[in-house]
Amino acid sequence: MSNVMTETDKVRKQTRRFMIGALLVAVLAFVVIAAGGINKNLVYYWTPSDLYANGDKAYGATIRLGGMVAPGSIRNHAGVSGVEFDVKDAGRIVHVKSSGVPPQMFRENIGVVVEGTMTRGGYFECNRLMVSHNNEYRAPKGGHKMSKEELEKLMKTTEGLQD
């Protein structure tokens, strides 16, 4: 009887040791990789003011810049599908260059989210231009300021037409 017991115990211990060992190795490797991976791939949700406040950090980082399209700033280039415009919030203005075709709702005084990065050339290079898809969101009219909360919500609820 005791023989049987020790045999099962041995089996259990072996199986367990094997599993625990394998798990530990995997979890360790995984944590290292994941931590590095997350840090490198963060997307910051910033307003133009946040962008200036973060200084040099903005160059090369992936940023979702949310704000209003400044009136009179939209420039289409003849024969090219790209568009240039300014995104502003209460305090600051960022010049944005986008290479894609802007979406249907895109116009002046609308809340937009542009995803891309700040270049040393002093403009924001945009590779995703988004206006809200969410039916609860109402674009503010006539140059009203958007509150920070509104902007933050806007940034979370948009999904881009470009990839």
């Binding site: 991976g37 997350i38 490198k40 963060l42 997307v43 910051y44 949700y45």
Partner: peptide, 14 residues
């Protein structure tokens, strides 16, 4: 209190 998300490259890479 800062807003951000984890980008697609993280998920893809993993």
């Amino acid at each position: 209190g800062k807003q951000m998300s984890v980008g697609r490259p993280y998920f893809d890479a993993m």
